[in-house]
């Protein structure tokens, strides 16, 4: 991956550039129902990533030839704002965002009970407002929260997380510099309860042992991220119930 450089990503105390330990996540904040027009929505801040997700549907799929008589199709659209990165990004779909849209659609199709909605489509709009490495898994994490808040039946919540290799060491949740100058990046999407993998991609090289270690780290982090998702979903309902439920 990235360009070879002499930048030291891990200091002598074993801490990373932003002061995290190898198994530490960046701060994550999720908010639900941020958009009134959408059927479900979520906003996630994951380190420097700021991503807005809107869910529409299920509704009848158009154009008609895209309809599947047996199940709903999930159309995720990952899009980066022109101002989301350092240098202005040319707006519109490109090779990278088309690929990410595809893998996210497929990951979500495994969680949503698509067979309940023949001929329908579910639109998931993932708008990256600010990018800081790991946008695809942050987008995926927020998308599954938005789907749940839209009342769409799902088998499980999808949680995304990355691990990677920097300075020869396996670490969790790569930041921007680590992503650019590290040796490998392994984003994964996992079903929170069953632990099934619904998205996996790898950039760079990892040995078998390194891969196992990275997977283990991710699986451990999934629990923490899932807890944040659950808090985001239930939070306002619990507080309202607590306020009112006392009589």
């Amino acid at each position: 991956m990235g360009t070879a450089s002499d930048i030291k990503l891990i200091d002598e105390n074993g801490l990373r550039i932003d002061g995290r330990s190898p198994t530490e996540l960046r701060p994550i904040k999720i908010e639900t129902d941020v958009l009134d027009r959408a059927d479900g929505s979520a906003y996630i801040e994951w380190g420097g990533n700021k991503i807005l997700v809107a869910v529409y549907g299920p509704r009848e799929a158009y154009p008609k030839h895209t309809q599947d008589i047996e199940k709903a199709i999930i159309k995720a659209r990952y899009n980066m704002a022109a101002f989301s990165v350092d240098e202005r990004k040319r707006p519109g779909p490109d090779r990278r965002s088309v690929e990410i849209s595809k893998v996210i659609s497929e990951a979500l199709s495994n969680a949503v009970m698509v067979e309940q909605f023949p001929r329908a489509q579910i639109d998931v709009f993932i708008e990256v407002l600010q990018a800081d490495a790991g946008t695809r898994i942050a987008g995926l994490t927020a998308a599954s929260v938005a789907l749940a808040s839209a009342g769409i039946p799902m088998r499980d919540l999808v949680v995304g997380c990355t691990a990677g290799k920097i300075d020869g060491q396996i670490v969790l949740d790569l930041g921007k510099e680590e992503d650019n100058f590290g040796q490998a990046d392994l984003p994964m999407g996992i079903l929170a309860k069953s632990g099934k993998v619904v998205l996996i991609q790898m950039d760079g090289d990892l040995s078998l042992e390194e891969f196992d270690k990275a997977t283990e780290m991710i699986l451990d982090a999934i629990k923490r991220i899932n807890e944040i998702q659950r808090q985001a979903l239930a939070g306002k309902f619990i507080s309202l119930a607590l306020e009112r439920g006392g009589e």
Binding site: A111, A148, M154, R155, L191, K193, F237, G245
Partner: peptide
């Protein structure tokens, strides 16, 4: 909190 109903998420065991 006996008054409130149990809140569940997709995938939660019942």
């Amino acid at each position: 909190m006996a008054e409130t109903k149990q809140i569940v998420m997709p995938g939660d065991l019942l």
